[in-house]
Amino acid sequence: MNFAGSGRAMNSRALARSYRHTAALHSPAMRASVTAGAALAGWQYGRGRGGGWWRHGNGGYGWVGPLFWPFAYFDIYDYALWGPRIGAPFWYYGYDDIYAGLFGPYDYQGLSGYLPPRDAAGGPDRLALLCGEDSREIAGLPIDLIAQTIDPTEAQRAALDDLANASVTSAQKIKAACPSSIALTASGRLASMQQRIEAMIAGVATVQPPLEKLYGLLNDEQKARLNAVAEDQERKTERRRSRSLAPPCDVTQSSSLRWPTEEIETRLRPADTQRAKLTALQDASTKAADMLATSCRPEEAATPTARLAATGKRLDVMLQAVKQVRTALDDFYATLNDEQKAQFEAIGPRRTSVADRADMMQRYGRR
C-alpha cells in the first residue's frame, strides 16, 4: 500500500477549508466526509464506495492516522442537544475501533503524513485540526441558537453564559488529548485511545452541571421550542442524506473484523504459553464487544440532560472495555520477542494493502 501522498493530501486546500468552515463542521454528514478524506489520505484506490475496512457505518472513521475520534466534541453535543438521529455518529464508536487499534491499518509511512510540520511556518498542525478547535465560535455549543430559541430571562441568560464557558473548557480538555506523536504498536494505540476517552469523560462532566441548571430553569414552552429546533435539524439532516446508513451499534461482525487467527499462527508461531495469553486477549476482546453492544441504547434518553448523561455512561463503558483489552494485550506482548512483535504489527497494514488491491481489481479489473 502506498501512503506516499498522505502529506500532500492532508495539505490540500479543499480539506483545509472544510476544517475551518464552521457551518460545514456542524453537519454530521460533512464531518464524516472530511474524516473519510483525512483517513484515506494517500489511499490509492479506496476513496470511492469501498473505503477502508475500519470505516464506520455512517461513512466516517474512528481512526484517522494516529488520532482516535476526530471531531469528538461535535459528536457529543449533537446527540445531547438534537437526539439520536442527528447524534447517531456518537454511537458508531465502539468495539470496531478497539479492533482497529489492535490491528492498526497504517504503517509508519502512512502515519508520518499526519505529523505536524517541522517548520512552524510550514502550515497548520493538520492533526490538531481534526482533534478539534477550542474557540467558542467553532468548538462550543451553539449558544446563540439556543438563546434565540428560548428567549432567556435574566437568570436563564446567566446560566446560558455559564454553559458557554463550560462548553469551551470541555472542548479544551478534549483537544488537549490529541496525540503529539504517532504510536507504532497496538499497546501505544490503545493507550492513546484510552487517553482520548478519559478526556471526553472529563469534558462531559464539565458540561453536565451547567446544562442541568439551565434546563431546570426552562419552562415547558421553552423546552418545546428546543424540541422543535431538534426536529427541524432532523428534517434537514434527512433531506441531505443521500444513501442508507448502517444502524449504529450494529453487532453483525463483518469478515474484515474477525480475528486473524490463522495469520497470527503463521506469522508468530506462538509457543504454548504465548498461545494461552493470545486466547486470553481474544476472550477480553469478545467481552469488550459484548459490553459495548449491551450499553448501546441511543433511543432511551428523552431530554438533553439525560442524553448528555448517556454519553458519559457510554464513554465509561468504552473506557472499561479499552482497559480490559489493553491489559490482556500487554500480558500477551510481554511473552513475545522483537520479531514476533514486528510480525503482529504488520498484520493490520497488510490487511489494508490487501483490501486496497482487491478494491483496485474490482474497479479496474474489467477494463
Rank of each mutant, 00 (worst) to 15 (best):
E133D: 14
A158S: 09
G216R: 01
A310Q: 10
I174S: 00
Q148N: 15
D290A: 15
G52M: 07
Y108T: 15
D162A: 09
P116Y: 07
N337G: 09
Y61C: 12
A24Y: 13
R269V: 15
R8Q: 09
G48M: 10
L329Q: 01
N11S: 13
A39P: 07
A158K: 06
P349M: 05
G365T: 04
D290M: 12
E212F: 09
R258C: 04
D162E: 13
A228R: 13
V325W: 03
A177I: 05
L15N: 04
D151Q: 13
T273A: 14
A186T: 08
Q172G: 12
R241T: 14
P260G: 03
A358Y: 15
G216L: 08
I197R: 01
R243A: 12
F74S: 11
A4P: 09
Q109C: 15
D97Q: 11
T311K: 09
E221W: 10
R189L: 06
R17A: 14
A288N: 00
Y106K: 06
W43Y: 14
L336A: 07
A147D: 10
A280P: 06
A309S: 12
R363Q: 15
C178I: 03
R258D: 02
M10F: 03
S353T: 14
L145N: 05
A280T: 10
A301N: 01
Q340N: 03
G113V: 05
G51K: 05
Y92W: 00
W43V: 08
T35R: 01
T352C: 01
R85D: 14
F344C: 10
I174E: 04
T237I: 10
S33G: 11
P179E: 04
A121F: 13
Q172T: 05
A36Q: 04
T169L: 13
D283W: 10
Q222A: 06
Q274V: 11
D316C: 05
Q340S: 01
G140E: 04
P349Y: 07
P28C: 03
Y93N: 00
G37L: 04
L145H: 15
W91R: 04
T149L: 09
D290Y: 13
D162K: 00
R326Q: 14
P260V: 02
L81Q: 08
Q109V: 13
T149V: 14
P248N: 02
A38G: 09
I143M: 06
L130W: 00
V204T: 02
T261V: 13
A202Y: 00
L145K: 13
T35H: 03
I201N: 00
Q253F: 14
A100W: 03
K323Y: 11
G42N: 08
L67Y: 04
A176H: 05
G216W: 02
R136L: 12
P89Q: 02
D331H: 11
Y61W: 04
R85N: 13
I174M: 07
A41L: 09
Y106I: 00
S187I: 12
L292I: 06
R357N: 05
G37V: 02
R243M: 06
I197K: 05
M193E: 01
T327A: 12
F3L: 10
T303K: 05
L292G: 03
L308W: 10
M200E: 10
A176R: 01
S254G: 14
R243E: 08
V207N: 07
A32N: 10
A155L: 13
N219A: 12
Q208F: 03
R239C: 12
P209E: 09
R363D: 15
F103N: 04
R269I: 15
L319V: 04
F71K: 07
E339I: 06
